[in-house]
Design a protein around this nucleic acid. Structure first.
Lengths: 255, 255
DNA sequence: CGCATCGTTGATCAAGCTCAAGCCGCGTGG
DNA sequence: CCACGCGGCTTGAGCTTGATCAACGATGCG
């Protein structure tokens, strides 16, 4: 269980609460319930009535959808500070996806009435919610297009880069299977691709972990740049990825 | 140009204005501008500043995204009564997709300030907007999973069924190319598939038009049902498709 | 130590993409 | 009215990508 002070730090920084006064943040936080989930257990499951909105405090949560034959697709991976279930809880729907903890995770939860009430009292909260949804929607559209038009290797490269950008290092803690379900391919293909990249010195492959050694070359694959591509600002090469407009990413760059 | 009375009929029935009083509908309608678009011209284009929200009055509008190499994907096709740009206009973003008229089309438009103002005055409008977005989001997630896990033939079948359900007959006015861009395949594969289906008597293929003759068998393909599948209510077979929960569809059934 | 999970790699194969060639129907302009 | 061109459609041949199957290797945990 996270200490309260830490909770507060996450809440006050996360996008969903951006622009709220300290008093408002306090109000919202007091209305929340903390929920824990062990690896493999679910915050909610596909098909259940959507009764709560969550904000991840710690851990990683895999949002996935499963088809009748049992093939699974990872729609999104949530980390600390991100909100889950924003859309559905406000529209009296059932969850269209499942939220499964990948590691020990904790989240704050508000039930439907509470969050509706809070949004009425703090209109800014509703606006933030809409922004988050918009962001997620655009990302999903982008990935849909990728899946329809891009080759597997490129999709894997992009997924890796995206995950790296959401984490805070060059290591991406995903299994081959995870990556496969994120990119609509099989674990075999991911494994082969990673092996090839390791041969080429682009990544180091580990058990449930892929470390990016040559971001630039990975980017060349992800964006189909010419092999001899020179970044306009090589010193700050991280800037030049159009993936998920990530201007803020530079601050996370290792020096 | 549509007669005003007709406009009003569309507006008052469409989901975005559901639950509003007549006075409110009037207020909103008066704030709108009518926009026309000839086939091939755009209501807005990918990358432009999102300045307006539209409701289609007549025609068909193709929402598509294009990748740097020029491969295109159709994200959605809008018909009369549907709202375009709900998300983006409220979040100060650029349009992530282009909206192109497939036939002569007209839409009502509100600019950002206006719609924001209206949403403040009529909170119900904001709620409706959120519901629409939620619906679209779920549909996109569903299609994303389809693209990642389902075979081409099944995807085409599902796209056809979906389009038929949104139209009002058994004929779907799409070219092979359109269907290909909707399902992430090529026009060749769509053509072959349609030919095979025509052989089998499932559809009649025409120029820019596909007519569904045997909905039941198409459904068997779309849902991978056993070939000898019997609908629980054969007489009202249209009910039994889980695609895009379409309970309302029965009213459109031809008798 | 044994089991479970995760990963690797080879062989095989089919789905579906690509390219090429040609057809059909329609609208347009001579 | 006809010829022409264009946009849409069809079909075949060949090939590539990436899925599938199978067997085995490594790592870590209880």
């Amino acid at each position: 269980m996270l200490p309260i002070a830490n909770q507060h730090a996450i809440i006050s920084q996360c996008a969903f609460f951006h622009g709220l006064t300290a008093a408002e943040v306090m109000l919202v936080q007091q209305a929340a319930v903390t929920v824990q989930a062990a690896p493999g257990s679910f915050f909610f499951q596909q098909g259940e009535e959507a009764t709560a909105l969550y904000i991840v405090l710690s851990g990683q949560v895999r949002l996935s959808q499963i088809n009748p034959e049992g093939r699974q697709v990872i729609v999104h991976i949530f980390g600390p500070g991100e909100a889950m279930g924003v859309i559905v809880v406000l529209s009296n729907m059932t969850y269209p996806v499942s939220a499964e903890a990948m590691v020990d995770s904790a989240a704050l939860a508000w039930n439907r009435q509470t969050i509706n009430q809070l949004m009425k009292e703090i209109p800014h909260l509703a606006l933030n919610g809409l922004r988050l949804v918009a962001q997620r929607f655009m990302e999903l559209q982008e990935r849909y297009r990728e899946l329809a038009t891009e080759r597997v290797e490129r999709r894997i490269a992009r997924a890796l880069i995206r995950q790296m950008q959401r984490g805070n290092g060059r290591a991406v803690p995903l299994t081959r299977q995870d990556l496969a379900e994120m990119t609509g391919t099989t674990l075999y293909t991911v494994s082969r691709t990673c092996s090839a990249w390791e041969q080429a010195g682009i990544v180091s492959a580990g058990r449930g972990l892929i470390t990016i050694n040559d971001y630039h070359r990975l980017l060349v694959i992800a964006e189909d740049l010419p092999p001899d591509h020179q970044c306009p600002q090589p010193a700050t090469c991280f800037y030049c990825s159009p993936i998920l407009n990530c201007d803020h990413f530079a601050v996370k760059r290792e020096t």
